[in-house]
């Protein structure tokens, strides 16, 4: 070390209320950290690979002359490329997309704690609340990117295989290709409502357990548990209030006329999961002893 070159520029001088970073600055750095980590790409790969496998499988099925399935979109899948993103959302929504979201949400606080970098950032000019908000926003941003990346991949692959054509809704009515594309985007946006609740649960477990693996697995376990509740006889009454039921909130968009009720319902039901989870995580993060590392 060149102690002799320590310039007066870094010497002591009065520092009075320097301009402090905003939460958005911290959020941008959270995203840059995600970009630099390999595990980030696992979730993104899920979003890309599954639609491609789906399109490939349906193309082979078409080639061998097999027909559609029970779902109207399965029967329509080879008629319009826009049926593909609807079907992949249907198939991915229960497990794959929550898994991708949990990979980052469950990791985002726990890994920093384990590596000791939480103390590094909490001894700079940022408050704990800012760091927490930035981490929640980053995990939610990641989940949003995965969902729309998957939708974009499915749309492009579907259109490449079967063309940009009109599509038939759940009600049996036909909508034009541009409107169909808009509905695909809207359906994915609606699906984000329950998925962001999953992210919140992941952040809570990440903050509370300080263990990345436990938080990721725990988040999935919670969603699977809620899904199992729906099939337990005698608990049918709980079904409208389960997070996993809300994974299908977007179905109303693909009916004629549009059924908005499931979307409004999912907004407040998911808020019942998101709000307490984030509030609890915030309090734990604010009050915790940072003794790791």
């Amino acid at each position: 070390m060149s102690s002799a070159t320590a310039s007066p520029a870094v010497a002591a001088r009065a520092v009075t209320h320097p301009r402090r970073p905003t939460t958005m600055t911290i959020w941008r750095w959270e995203l840059r950290k995600l970009v630099a980590q390999k595990r980030t790409y696992l979730g993104l790969a899920i979003g890309i690979v599954f639609p491609l496998i789906f399109v490939l499988a349906q193309s082979l099925r078409q080639h061998h002359g097999h027909g559609g399935g029970d779902n109207i979109f399965f029967s329509e899948v080879t008629q319009s490329g826009l049926a593909t993103p609807v079907l992949t959302l249907l198939l991915e929504s229960a497990f794959l997309l929550p898994l991708a979201a949990a990979l980052v949400a469950g990791d985002i606080v726990a890994t920093e704690d384990g590596n000791g970098t939480l103390k590094t950032i909490l001894t700079r000019s940022v408050d704990r609340g800012q760091v927490f908000a930035a981490k929640v926003l980053a995990a939610m941003t990641y989940a949003t990117i995965v969902v729309f990346l998957s939708a974009a991949t499915a749309t492009i692959a579907g259109i490449s295989a079967w063309g940009f054509k009109h599509v038939v809704t759940f009600s049996g009515s036909v909508v034009s290709a541009p409107k169909g594309l808009l509905l695909v985007f809207a359906a994915n946006a609606c699906y984000l409502i329950p998925l962001l609740a999953v992210v919140s649960i992941g952040v809570l477990l990440s903050t509370a357990t300080r263990n990345s693996a436990a938080a990721v697995v725990g988040t999935l376990a919670v969603t699977l548990l809620l899904a199992l509740v729906t099939v337990i006889p005698g608990l049918e009454g709980a079904q409208p209030y389960l997070l996993t039921t809300e994974y299908n909130n977007w179905h109303g968009l693909l009916r004629t006329p549009t059924d908005w009720a499931p979307i409004w319902h999912s907004l407040w039901v998911c808020a019942l999961y998101t709000g307490p989870a984030l509030a609890a995580a915030y309090l734990v993060f604010l009050r915790r002893d940072v003794a790791g590392g």
Partner: peptide, 28 residues
């Protein structure tokens, strides 16, 4: 400023990127 126990950094980032991150959190 300083560090408690061993200083910890993001192992997947370069030294410069680590310092850029910390500088962003310092402002000024």
């Amino acid at each position: 400023a300083g560090f408690v126990e061993a200083p910890r950094f993001y192992p997947y980032l370069s030294a410069r990127k680590n310092l850029e991150l910390l500088a962003a959190l310092d402002g000024a």
